[in-house]
Design a protein around this nucleic acid. Structure first.
Lengths: 273, 273
DNA sequence: CGGGACGCTTCCACCAACCAGAAGGGCGGC
DNA sequence: GCCGCCCTTCTGGTTGGTGGAAGCGTCCCG
């Protein structure tokens, strides 16, 4: 059990972008939400792959369906890749389980409800229900954000492996507002508090008008697999009223996922291990 | 303009699974909704790639984040791939535009509302709102289905390129119920009718109790990019009442996408070309 | 308690698949 | 009409890829 992660011992790929696979993946890596459609030359330049090599590899990716080409010749992410991505246990399947309960929480509050997971040292938003009249948020489904600022991020970081925490604490903490935590010692205190209380509060740390309550969601192995957060306007925010709501919904989702801390762990096939 | 598709001329990859890229993609291809988590040996066998080669390539994919490993060593689709897939213009971005209008349609009917696109000769479901009391459907977001049976499939096939239509007509048409179209000539007539009327009806062709109304959604270049469908119980289904509803919603979505047939094509950045 | 089967990981020498420079052609902009 | 940008194709040298085999650890079953 606990197979050591393969090719840590300086195999090919460690020394830069030398292997075919790394080039292939580098080509895919240049697509972003801001630039979802790119020409061959752009991809070649951005990925640092010679033009003719990029041309050949992109041709193979397109033939398979990972990429598509528009009538103008530009490449974009193909539907096949979307289908494949929809199989990621921490993506769509997690969303499917959590969404009904998130909707209940939305009906009770009519505020923004967000579901996020941790990927390395970043937060990734898996689902989002944004109320029409609710405070606007900067997040996007499938998008990333700095982990030290958002409410969900604080929850996920507080329960992340030590090496991830040390990594975040050792890097510069980007400031979004004057309330954003930017000192490692402060962050360390906040994380301890999050672990102690079982939820996180983020008061105007991302935008000047948002107040977030976030709670951890547990999986089969009793580890934190996701975070549920509720984003309201910081004026008139009532933590005493919001915290139990978020905690309760997060617990319900954990139970559906089969978390050991909850009884009746029926039919939990998601996020095994 | 209209760059010819690359490497049609018998480049590497035509002769089988010989290139590194094709092997890499073959490894990804073995993941399905039914088998979202696989061991190294399983992947190696299913993909037809030697064990040690698979091991090395899977290691690279995991290092990049395309795959993840559970504590038991099994591989699964990673969040990075989900993030990348969420950039597919025909996936999440299309969903984002269509969802509000789909919800309006759901509120008006409380029936199943589905959004699908064509990938080759198959239908892929991009979004789905299933009413609690509505008739159950076999579809899954991110899942495929036979194009000749579903309502959305008939719409998409009716407006597909001739070679796709011929391909479907020449293959065996799988039967799901006794009402499923299984004769090429019948299908040909139905497709002509769908083009003429501008919508498709599917009466118990997938399940014994479902009746579907589907309408095309047009994109920037005035081609059909998706299909909107409403699935109701076949008993008491009122096409005269349902068809205008679906057509109207589909037209609204087309307008948001910037279809030329509709005025006020404001801010249409999706599905360009 | 011991044997065997299975699965993961690592190693290495051969070799062919890949790389990248250069040339060719089409389109649009100045 | 000229120039520049971008895409596409071709080719020989060489570097990264291949996969058989061996080494282990684990689990199952006798």
């Amino acid at each position: 059990m606990a197979y050591p992660s393969p090719s840590r011992s300086g195999g090919p790929g460690t020394d830069g972008s030398r292997t075919v696979s790394s080039r292939l993946l580098a080509l895919l890596d240049v697509f972003t939400a801001a630039q979802p459609q790119l020409t061959l030359s752009e991809i070649s330049r951005l990925a640092g792959v010679p033009l003719s090599t990029a041309h050949r590899l992109l041709g193979e990716l397109s033939a398979w369906g990972a990429l598509e080409r528009g009538a103008d010749g530009r490449y974009r992410i193909g539907l096949k890749l979307w289908e494949l991505g929809s199989l990621a246990p921490r993506g769509l399947p997690l969303r499917e389980v959590a969404l009904p309960l998130m909707e209940d929480l939305y009906e009770a509050t009519h505020e923004n409800v967000q579901l996020s997971v941790r990927e390395g040292a970043a937060v990734v938003f898996v689902e989002r229900i944004c109320g029409r009249g609710a405070v606007p948020t900067l997040t996007r489904v499938g998008g990333r954000f700095a982990i030290h600022a958002t409410g969900g991020g604080l929850v996920l970081l507080a329960h992340a492996p030590p090496e991830i925490q040390e990594q975040v604490l050792s890097e510069t903490l980007q400031k979004f507002t004057r309330y954003t935590i930017d000192s490692p010692s402060k962050l360390r205190r906040v994380l301890a508090e999050v672990r102690l209380r079982g939820y996180a509060l983020s008061d105007r740390q991302v935008t000047e008008d948002a107040f977030t309550v976030a709670a951890p969601i547990y999986g089969l192995s009793d580890e934190v697999v996701a975070a549920l957060s509720l984003v309201v306007n910081h004026q008139g925010a009532e933590p005493a009223y919001l915290v139990p709501l978020v905690l309760s919904t997060a617990r319900s989702i954990s139970r559906l996922l089969g978390a050991p801390g909850s009884q009746h762990s029926e039919d939990a096939r998601y996020l095994r291990n």
